[in-house]
Design a protein around this nucleic acid. Sequence first.
RNA 1: GCUGGUGUGGUGGAAUGGUAUACACACAGGACUUAAAAUCCUGCGGCCUUGACUGGCCUUGUGGGUUCGAGUCCCACCACCAGCACCA
Length: 875
Amino acid sequence: MIAESYNPQVIEAEAQRHWDEQRAFAAREEPGREKYYCLSMFPYPSGRLHMGHVRNYTIGDVIARYQRMLGKNVLQPMGWDAFGLPAENAAMASGVAPAQWTFDNIAYMKRQLKSLGFAVDWAREVATCAPEYYRWNQWLFLRMLEQGVVYLKTGVVNWDPVDQTVLANEQVIDGRGWRTGALVEKREIPMYYMAITRYAEELLAELDHLPGWPEQVKLMQKNWIGKSHGVRIGFPYRLPSSAGSGAGSAGESGILWVFTTRADTLLGATYVAVAAEHPLALHAAKNNPALAIFIDECRHGGVTEAELATQEKKGMPTGLTVTHPLTNEPLPLWVANYVLMGYGEGAVMAVPAHDERDFAFAHKYNLPIKPVIRTSAGDETPAPWRDAYADYGACINSGPYDGLNFEQAVDAIAADLSDKALGEKKVTWRLRDWGISRQRYWGTPIPIIHCADCGAVPVPDAQLPVVLPPHLVPDGSGNPLNKHPEFLHCACPQCGKPARRETDTMDTFVDSSWYFFRYCAPDADMMVDGRANYWMPVDQYVGGIEHAILHLLYSRFWTKVMRDLGLTTVKEPFANLLTQGMVVAPTFYREGVDGRKQWINPADVAVQTDDKGRPVAATLRGDNQPVTIGAIEKMAKSKNNGVDPQTLIEQYGADTARLFMMFAAPPDQALEWSDSGVAGAYRFLRRLWAYAAEHQDAIRAAGEVNAAILSEPLRAARREVHEALRQALFDFSRHQFNTVVSGGMKILNALSRIEADVDAHAAAARREGLGILLRLLSPIAPHITHALWRELGYGEDVLNAAWPEPDTAALTRSLVTLVVQVNGKLRGQIEVPVDADRVAIERAAQAEPNVQRFVEGRPIRKIVVVPGKLVNVVC
RNA sequence: GCUGGUGUGGUGGAAUGGUAUACACACAGGACUUAAAAUCCUGCGGCCUUGACUGGCCUUGUGGGUUCGAGUCCCACCACCAGCACCA
């Protein structure tokens, strides 16, 4: 018996209990049966689920349930990306140890996830902060060290001189430390690197073999990897003899190397610039106090590329010159803050006539500008800059190279440089090796021991895992592991003498670079076992677009490393990728006396609208005083515009939350939060329930539809149902779930229009239509469809039902309506038999009065007929 | 700054090169009710035309182009969003 009113709390608890009892989502390896590994990016356990999580996991769950109904053996696991900075921040704020905070959050969020009814195999849950997990980070790190894929070199970090600590980019605000307000400095420290550049060629090439990835993500990765062909060019130099050495003695000589993709402009180089940290810059600064001060200034500020690229371009001459490799002219050597030590050679040749940045720099510092390419903008380079100056073209003012085009000039110049041993063609990559050392506590300990005699010694495998002491509480000044003797002091594995453990931990991107392997064999006594060869690769990966580059690239890299170590047979981890859009919401604020904005949560605001429903004003519910309406932005703590999904689930139930999320926008677009949209989703589910309750007896008793003897209204209703079904199945296959929901609404609308009577034909049509609707909606709203499916006697578990197929007989009609255009403009409609031939259609179209009016006796040049759709009369 | 994306009614959005605005939300009017809520019904891009039926013109950020036909493909521009290597 179906209760009169829809009570989501009761039916959702009941459905979830049923699935638990049945172990409905336990995934087992069944060789020979087609598998489907559906994976959503695991959450960081920040405290509570946010709307982005609900959206992400609903999308993944809909796909998993859709594939299950296609008959696949589906694996959908879940776990926790549990190491990271927020736990340390929480510890500083409240004194709770990161481990405690993290595990409490996991417990709460797991309950929330379960209440949403996701078809997850919880037996495979992993948390990256568990020693059983991160020991394999350490183990693979050691294998990579053996292979030379991990190595040590210096890297640049943000240094807070007051707290004496390294800051994450996020902790640097306008060039200052977030807690101390001190000006941040760049500092070089030794770090471990993973040689992702060794795989650059393969990471690039394999993108062409990932048809299931969005083009935009592949393009972003391609540009990030940044393969460029160019020429490495040497500029010989001779340093002046230093002040201390005897007069007349020659100074040290050498070659300054640069890389350029525009070797054809070499004759236009008018100066050479090096990074502030470049050895030549440091050498020149020894006898040049002003230059030393400039170089010191370049140390201020953060290390992000965005900051470096947008800062004011500044430079200073070193007083040194280098020699042009072809003309032997002396060129001034400058230090410039826009040259990055970490990219290429840390030095560039500057061609102001054909490079926008060099052009601006040359103007600012009065350096010569020499055009050497005939561009579409002409032979000169007058200010202001025009993009055309950077065009390719024939060489001019370039002596023997005049008249050559780009390729010819590059070939000729590279050959001449090669003869002098001052250059060769070279491929370079924008991609840099991955620095994984973090001077932080809450992460995977790097398994290295420092011995005074033996140096940096790898921890032997038998001593893994190096366990992180779980009860430390960071205080914001440095890494607490450095103050923890039990962790710090150990014996050297080689000589046995007292030694010191490495206290740096790994970047948390390491944790997330292979967790999808661990789900396949969460209890294995090795990193992965043969079960991974059954499940991998992931068939569908779902997550935020913000991960399009780093996480996905690192995961691809780790997979290739694991393949080369014989740990897996796959070379790419994710066959298909869906990048979901953000959840956004309006913002509200008041300005405080100090001009700072106080952000007010949308839940506490009442919005007044005009007669068209547009918001015109808003007031705070507490005091009824006005608040300012801000922009619509990504739900975030900083703007206090987050809506807590828990309230939504408690008020309306999981099915409403899921239905709203799927209906409000296609998965890959931004989703705007709307209270009334949620109410609308709830209203639809209530309508569905009420319809089932009202007709339950007739539906239970109904037989099969007899298509041959249906009345015209029933035939029409049935056609609508099957048309919506056909479209919805297509939309499922392309993951456009918002129109799947529309299709479901159309079906319920069509069924509701069937006249209420006791006709057995009507009952049969209702039974068929509702059966289709319940299956269509079951991946999206699994609880209500589960309950109704059973109650109406369709079967045991809708989750195991097969997809219905549209009945082609229901779709066919005897007459079709064709749109008639004249010269592409809509002028009328004609109704023709479905099997009308082209001549008959053309005749009917020309006979239409409005068509005749617009043709007006002009000769008809052509008639385009699109079968079943339209006729276009061209005259 | 560089890289990638997005732009359609009052709002979220639909349209597989072929009737732009499906399906919802909001709003307005009506039914039911003592009343409210809930529910149900009707209307709903703009301008013009007609007594009405009808019909016309305009409209998918802006300006061009390709095509019998463009929201969709191409070029340029504008606005907004995301990422930029230590947030995850």
